[in-house]
């Protein structure tokens, strides 16, 4: 457990010291959402209908953007080798890094989501479920993305490749995240969608951590 905390503390330390990085991710997230009305047109009723979809797609893209650096820096400066050689299991270290990533990108996205919901004229109930869905959904984004980030270590043009690999895998989270919000807006229950998002997270937690650790081990060889 302490190995987990040590790595988590260091990664948060690094993130805070390089504060600008997590800021850029949040700014990218806000920017995408702001651009949409220019494309789709400012009519409030259209915006309200597409609001949850736009916010979720923006969250997906923002998390993909920030994931490329997850293992890349440690891979280049040799820390990843030393981390895999430490007495702490690599899966624990991957989990610590994913938690750090979620705290530095997932959480800021959730905090800015209400502002964007207002911009897109989303009603209040929808906003509440949106935040709930983001809280349950974004950890799976970080987990699945971590597998992608581990796979592209050492690859040419890693960033674009990462998006190409993991966006299809993000689809279930996107579909159920958006439909949770739409269900509430149209007056239905959203419990089922949130439960499925939770199930997806619980499945992703062990599987993705293990897959990422295996990919790192073969990347270090």
């Amino acid at each position: 457990m302490n190995g987990f905390m040590t790595v988590l503390k260091r990664d948060l330390h690094l993130a805070i010291r390089q504060g600008i990085d997590s800021m850029t991710v949040v700014m990218f997230f806000v920017l995408i959402v702001i651009i949409f009305p220019f494309g789709v047109g400012p009519e409030p009723n259209i915006l309200a209908r597409v609001a949850s979809g736009v916010i979720w797609v923006a969250a997906l893209l923002a998390s993909t953007l920030s994931l490329e650096r997850l293992f890349q820096i440690d891979y280049e400066d040799g820390s990843l080798e030393l981390l895999s050689l430490s007495s702490v299991a690599l899966e624990v270290i991957v989990l610590a890094k994913v938690t750090a990533h979620w705290l530095t990108t997932g959480l800021p996205l959730i905090i800015t989501a209400p502002l964007l919901a207002v911009l897109l004229n989303m009603n209040k109930e929808g906003l509440l479920v949106l935040i709930l869905a983001l809280v349950v959904g974004t950890p799976s984004l970080s987990l699945v993305g971590a597998v992608g980030a581990a796979l592209i270590l050492g690859a040419r043009r890693g960033g674009v490749l990462l998006a190409l690999i993991i966006l299809p895998l993000y689809l279930p989270v996107l579909i159920f995240g958006v439909s949770a919000v739409d269900a509430i807006i149209n007056g239905f229950e959203a419990k089922a969608q949130l439960l499925i998002l939770g199930a997806f997270f619980l499945a992703a937690l062990p599987l993705c951590t293990w897959a990422a650790a295996t990919s790192i081990k073969q990347a270090i060889e």
């Binding site: 796979l151 895998l169 897959a211």
Partner: peptide, 30 residues
Amino acid sequence: ALINAFDDPARGTKSSSILVLVGLINVPII
């Protein structure tokens, strides 16, 4: 794309094999 993204072909094959297995689990979910 992943299989051709590495200079060392062995790395490319290994990464993409892991990806296709991860993909296989996801196909029914998707």
